[in-house]
Design a protein around this nucleic acid. Structure first.
Lengths: 140, 140
DNA sequence: TTAATTGTGCTTCCGATAAGCACAATTAAT
DNA sequence: ATTAATTGTGCTTATCGGAAGCACAATTAA
């Protein structure tokens, strides 16, 4: 699970970790602690908790604190899409409304178009549910 | 022109610089040296030359070395799209064919889908020619 | 009361990318 | 021919966003 991607554009660790975690939760069908998930996903519990919170805010998972607490899916794998996860994880999607209002107009226009393009990406990823995604995988 | 974007996904300096440079070349209608473009775009000549070479390989611009040399558009602004530029600049698009063949299958499948998504982004950006893009800008 | 867990502030570390220098090769002006 | 300007590129250094990781308050159940 070490990050081997050299792309800046796509596939930051957060997204990969998030998908892994959700797939694990789906497979287990129960509640899992950050430590358990982290060990499976070769990540770190603290980092994973932050990722999980993004997913929590998006209504994809929920958490229970205290002893015997952990994370669990709030939706079925058939209801969660990769687009939902991307949207939840991707920092730009969570930024305030005021994006680029400084800088030259050429930058502003370019930024607008790139944001539109990113929405297209999310729409495309909505075509894949976690259930469908898991069907593509031969678990070892 | 300092990089103000906090997104990892979209809008790396290279892309912004490339678009700026092409717009400048289009406006000037002539050949410009890396030093000239760099000063306009608040970048650095060396970095800009590397960016320009990516564009050159993509057939978007061409260069002439030696004294009185520089860069010039090889296509008209109406023939160059933002998708072309993205494709030329984006590192992943230029990588060798062998992408992710190591790692777990879940990573491989995810990577495949994310690459498909990136192609969608490029297709979307093909809808904007530089000519159209420049029409959106009020040059000061 | 104790143990396990989330959520989060904080600091440190790391890696990818940009900055920037240097210079060979090239090309045109003089 | 000589000189000046320019690309292309190898190399080193600097920068910076994100991840790693510690610590601990708050919470919750054993």
């Amino acid at each position: 699970m070490r990050n081997t991607s050299r792309s800046v554009h796509i596939g930051p660790p957060r997204l990969k970790i998030a998908v892994h975690a959700i797939v694990w939760l789906a497979r287990s069908g129960s509640m899992l602690s950050s430590a358990m998930i982290a060990s499976q996903v070769d990540s770190h519990a603290t980092f994973l908790r932050r990722v999980m919170q993004s997913l929590s805010h998006a209504g994809i998972v929920d958490s229970k604190g205290g002893r015997e607490g952990g994370y669990f899916l709030k939706k079925s794998p058939a209801e969660i899409t990769l687009g939902d996860i991307y949207e939840a994880i991707c920092p730009v999607c969570n930024e305030s409304e005021i994006k680029v209002d400084c800088g030259e107009q050429i930058d502003i226009e370019l930024e607008k178009i790139l944001q539109e393009a990113e929405l297209q990406t999310i729409e495309y990823l909505r075509h894949y549910t976690i259930a469908q995604f898991m069907d593509r995988i031969h678990f070892s």
